[in-house]
Design a protein around this nucleic acid. Sequence first.
DNA 1: TATTGTTATACTCTATAACTATA
DNA 2: TATAGTTATAGAGTATAACAATA
Lengths: 166, 166
Amino acid sequence: MPKPANTELRKFEKSLPIALLRSREVTTRLFKPFLESHDLTMPQWRVLRALADADALDAKTLAERCVILPPSLTRIFRGLTQRGLIAQVECNDARRHMVRLTEEGRAMFEEVVEESEPTYLQLAAAFGPERLDTLLDLLNELRNTVQAMGEQSEEEAPLRKVAGRR
Amino acid sequence: MPKPANTELRKFEKSLPIALLRSREVTTRLFKPFLESHDLTMPQWRVLRALADADALDAKTLAERCVILPPSLTRIFRGLTQRGLIAQVECNDARRHMVRLTEEGRAMFEEVVEESEPTYLQLAAAFGPERLDTLLDLLNELRNTVQAMGEQSEEEAPLRKVAGRR
DNA sequence: TATTGTTATACTCTATAACTATA
DNA sequence: TATAGTTATAGAGTATAACAATA
């Protein structure tokens, strides 16, 4: 039973939400200059990056995939469309707002990737490429695990609301 | 060379900042109800949690440890002090704003920990306790790695500013 | 002169509810 | 009636610069 038993460390350093936040903070800071030089915010970049992997996506999919709430996405669509980086795409279901990258959007995406690639490789080299892979796998699996927990508890208690305010 | 070679996955699913964001999002969502029932925001909670591990901490340390900018921390201090959860502590250096948990603050901290513990254990069980440990270690080491990279590049180019806006 | 923290300010993101339009 | 998205709005976080107090 090699449990470190250091309650203090376990409580702060080993708090999962806090560890995720702090890791994200330094990582984001590392790559943010590449976005700022193109006048892109992180959420805008997530949208471009998601679109780069697909022909076209609707707002609901992008909201889920990029962790952006619908009202924010509406504004992001407006900004990116005005700048000519994305464009709306016809869709059978007229309710859906479906968008794709324009040529300019694709070009900017490639530029950012190219410019930030050396930093990414430097990080991979410093951290260890195989450990980085492990970390990414664990992160994606953690998400699946937690999401499964959420669905499960919703089945058991569809009307949860956990605890009353105050 | 068993590299999946799936460019699409590598680009989005394997983007480190995005993976960290998405994992944090679901994890935060899982624990947020326990904070909301005590009218605590996540940043407020991080401050309480950091203080629970130490007798007293100054603003600078808390800002770094909890990833909160000084102006936000000022407001958080005000809120938590008004509610009697933290209190200022005398300090040799009069510039420093040093705070500690009050008894009420400690009590609320313990309450939240107790209430959320079952969910934490459920997550650990579902994900695998040893994998959770691995993940936490990797996250903390990633932070160290990136921070070291930042310090290094500052030495090399103390006057960076990366790229001009527009 | 450097450091610590606060104030001021602007902008973005977060979150919810209400509304419009399509299906 | 249910779904997709927008609008409206309030609140919280993010970020910078300017300032005050202390070292």
